[in-house]
Computed example of a mutant assay.
Amino acid sequence: MATIEQAGTTAMPPYFGTVLRNGSSGPDSAQVQTWLNGVHTRWPQVPSVSVDGKYGGGTANAVKAFQTVAGLTVDGQVGSSTWNALYAAFADIRGAGEVFCGVTARSGDRGAVVKSMQQKLIRIRQVYTAIASISADGAFGSASAAALKQFQRQFALGIDGAFGRNTFAALAKVYGQVLAGAPTPVLPRYPGLLRQGSTGDSVRCVQSYLSALGSTVPKVTIDGRFGSATTASVRSFQRLARLTEDGKVGPATWSALVMAFNGTLRA
């Protein structure tokens, strides 16, 4: 029987509260499969499994094998005790920290992986205010997908609103840098000319970056609608940056805004 040290260990992501069993599916099932494959290197009696997010008989048997070596109730289901012990065993082998679950989480999914994503977005939103407010409820709905797109837009990722490997890695990095007090500079691609009447996430970026400049430019609301207040604030910024004062965001103004915002991150 294996001795698994769990004292002081918090699973990453923490257990969501839903028991996983034969027939379950989604990112949390994939997380379990990823952890099982990680402990297989130490305990070969725990079979390796396919990481597909589908909790079938093979995954249930591997969970039973792990529960046997860990001295847990052998039922092939992953409740809080098995979730925490499996993470602790994986972390002891591979190092502590959250790892990509192995499948892309999408709108409609729910669970611990989704809640962890939401919590990170909520925390970094304090710096990157173009990201809309969401709830950390573990349900991947349209609001979470929209917030994820707003994150992806600012860090040169594919803007699909899905939580795949690249977005997981980028969010983990940006989140870690925010916690460390050294936020990551944004790298948004120029979206084309923005002017009064424009709408969308690129406008939210403009408004966010203007807002970060404080009292040096007129205050704007971050709502994704390029109205007269945003036009006035852009004109003010253009005056300070010695750009053409037309109230429109072309490539020169966009680049200057991005640079100015990134400068506030180092302040």
Score class of each variant (00 low, 15 high):
residue 239 R to A: 13
residue 104 T to I: 12
residue 254 W to G: 03
residue 90 F to Q: 07
residue 51 V to Y: 03
residue 54 K to R: 12
residue 41 T to G: 04
residue 240 L to I: 13
residue 120 K to V: 06
residue 235 R to E: 13
residue 136 A to T: 01
residue 71 G to S: 10
residue 42 R to Q: 15
residue 165 R to Y: 15
residue 81 S to H: 00
residue 190 Y to Q: 09
residue 96 A to H: 04
residue 169 A to G: 14
residue 136 A to N: 00
residue 127 V to N: 01
residue 228 S to K: 08
residue 243 L to I: 11
residue 168 F to D: 07
residue 181 G to P: 14
residue 257 L to S: 01
residue 217 V to C: 01
residue 49 V to F: 08
residue 121 L to I: 11
residue 244 T to G: 13
residue 166 N to G: 12
residue 62 A to I: 04
residue 86 L to Q: 12
residue 116 S to Q: 14
residue 139 A to N: 10
residue 240 L to R: 15
residue 131 I to W: 09
residue 91 A to D: 11
residue 147 A to I: 05
residue 161 G to H: 07
residue 167 T to V: 06
residue 147 A to R: 12
residue 21 R to L: 04
residue 138 G to F: 15
residue 69 V to K: 02
residue 4 I to C: 00
residue 229 A to F: 05
residue 247 G to P: 01
residue 54 K to Q: 14
residue 114 V to R: 02
residue 195 R to F: 13
residue 233 S to V: 06
residue 37 N to S: 11
residue 15 Y to K: 10
residue 93 I to S: 02
residue 10 T to G: 07
residue 92 D to M: 09
residue 264 T to S: 08
residue 186 V to M: 08
residue 122 I to F: 02
residue 52 D to N: 15
residue 130 A to H: 11
residue 188 P to V: 10
residue 134 I to D: 09
residue 249 V to W: 01
residue 188 P to Y: 04
residue 226 F to Y: 15
residue 70 A to R: 03
residue 96 A to W: 02
residue 43 W to L: 14
residue 53 G to D: 10
residue 88 A to R: 01
residue 202 S to L: 08
residue 238 Q to G: 06
residue 23 G to E: 04
